[in-house]
Amino acid sequence: MPASAAGVTIESALAKTRGGFLGRLFGRGDEKVTGDWLDSLEEGLLRADLSVSLVDPLMAQLRDLFATGELKTVPKALAAVRETLVAALAGDVRLRGDGKTPRVILVVGVNGSGKTTTAAKLAKRLKDSGERPLLVAADTFRAAAIQQLERWAERVDVPIVSGKPDGDPAAVVFDAVSAATARGNTTVIADTAGRLHTKGQLMEELGKIVRVTARAREGAPDEVLLVLDGTAGQNAIQQARQFTATAAVTGLVVTKLDGTAKGGAVFAIVQELKLPVKLLGVGEKAEDLVPMDPTAFVNGLLPASG
């Protein structure tokens, strides 16, 4: 696997996108705002997957300010946009927990969004910060999903409890929480099967996992992380609505931000559901999961200068 540079940061991962479309927006610092420039800005925001329902009012506001002469230079316009976007993403990125052990984190999401990889990376992160995490392979549906997490567990050197193919995922999580109590693990990270949010039965199964987890330890799960594919478009909003309704999602993880996609769909989710984005997946290596930094994230959309 081709290595990304050591110590990848959100900026460096997201910066790959800058040379592209939006990069062209930023010429000299004293450049004047024009109608064309505003059109380009609008295009850039839409192409970053920001929802048209957010972009349209924002652009209307900027065009009004431009018409009245209050908005003259590109740096000023950019600063206004950046401020709006950064403020929209403000939230507590710390993982929840009320001191009871083990802390229980469920990782949920649609197929192929990056749940298994995220679970493993999160285990590594917690281990490096001095915790004693336990991974749980509760995706008993997809062929070889259990093996996939087992290989990861070995790679990041974290213990794992695995379900059996076609077994009951809720029971796997329940048993793992008891096992963690016995072994003295501080945090349990359970990887669940990918499911489309429109599949009633599979969502019901997820609801059951959450309920059974609560029986394993009062107040659990502490954190239900919804993993969103950073390359996803507006459908991510539907996913977030449905998963929140069924599984009481407490935070978001946006993955695959090392490509050219910018994950802009997340703005509408944060606005509507008031869920914080807690972590970002910015590469393929175990350490490529970093806490959300709104300024860096927005800088991936809008270059820092200006």
Binding site: L46, R47, D49, G112, G233, Q239, G259, A261
Partner: peptide, 8 residues
């Protein structure tokens, strides 16, 4: 992916 966004 049918759920892909603008980057597709």
């Amino acid at each position: 992916d049918a759920m892909a966004g603008q980057d597709a």
